[in-house]
Amino acid sequence: MKRFLLAASLLALTAGMAEARDQIRIVGSSTVYPFTTAVAEQFGKTSGMKTPVVESTGTGGGMKLFCAGIGADHPDFTNASRQIKKSEFEDCAKNGVTDIVEIKVGFDGLTVANSKAGPDLTFTKTQLFLALAKEVPDKDGKLIANPYKTWKDVDASLPDEKIEVLGPPPTSGTRDSFVELVMDKGAEGIDSLKALKKSDAKAFEKVWKSIREDGAYIDAGENDNLIVQKLEANPQAVGIFGYSFLEENQNKIKGAAIDGKSPSYETIASGEYKVSRPLFVYAKKQHVGTIPGMVEFVKEYVSDKALGEDGYLASKGLVPLPGDDFKKTKAAAEAMETLKGDQLM
C-alpha cells in the first residue's frame, strides 16, 4: 500500500513538473464555443499542430481562468459573449496578464420564436417588457405586480393567448443579454419609467432587470435545443434563444419580428434587427513564443475562409461583421494589437 501511495504521489509530482505545453487551451462562453471549436478543428487539420482544447466554462468563469496568470498552467484564449469588464481587465493586470488582444468575431442574434403551428408574432420591445417584467406601471404610472395574463391584455394587436415564455435561467449570458437588449429598451419606451430613470436610476434598473416569477416566464435551462422541442410540442408557447438554433430548426419554429424587423442573417448583419450582441475572443499575447501556434490560430480565426461572409463560421450560424469592421478587426488581430483599459466600461 505504501509503495502504491508513493508511486501515486511521484506520478503527481512528475506531472506537475511537465510545465511545457504544445497545445493551445481555450476557455469561456458556451455561446462562442460552437464557433471557436470549428476554428480549432480546422486549425488542427491544416496547421499540422495539435488541435486546441476548447472548454465550455461560461463567459465569467472563462475570464477568471484567463486572468489567473501567465504560464503553461493558464489558458491562452477565452471566449466571451460580452466585452471584458474593466474590473476583469484590472484583475488580469494584477495577475500579470497585461497584454490582451481583443478579437470581435461577429454577432449573435437573440430571437423570440414560436412554433410554426402558432400565430405569426410581431412585438415591440415595450410589449415584451410589459409581458415579462415583474412589476409594470399602471395607468397612473404606479408600479404594480404584472397583471397581464394573455398577450391581448398587453396589446390589442397581439393574439388572445396565454403568456407563456420559455427562456434561459438567470445564470445564463443569453438571459443577461436579453434583459439588457430588450427589457431595458422596452422600459424606456414607457413615459412613467423614463421619468423614473431620471429621478432614480437604481429603482429603474431594478424594474427592467426583474423578470416575473408567477409562471408566465419559465426557466427552461441552458439547453436551447430543449426549448425548441418544447415550442414544437406547445404552439402557444414562445421561446427565447440564440439565432443559430432558429436557423437550424426553421422547419419547426419561426422568429417573431421585433420593432418591425424579423430576425434573419441579413437583418442581424446589417444591424437592422436590434436584438443582437457582439461575440469576442481574447488572446493572451504574452503566450506568443511559449505556446506554439498562438499567432497562427488567430490568423485562422480571422481568415476570410473562416470569418468571411461565406466562411465556414457563417454556415455554423455566426453572423459576421460588416465588411469594413471585419477588415479592421482582421488587421488589428493579425498585428496582435493589445487592449487598453481606458476603452472599457
Binding site: 511537465a18 488542427g44 476548447v54 443559430s244
Partner: peptide
Amino acid sequence: VAFIVDIPGGFTDAATALPIQIYLWSDLPE
C-alpha cells in the same frame, strides 16, 4: 467539459468522458 479532437494517448493528455460528450453534443444547434 471540453472540445477535444485528438484521441488521448495517456493519463495526462487532455480528454473528455462519455457523459460529457453527450452533454456537449446535446447543446449544439445542428
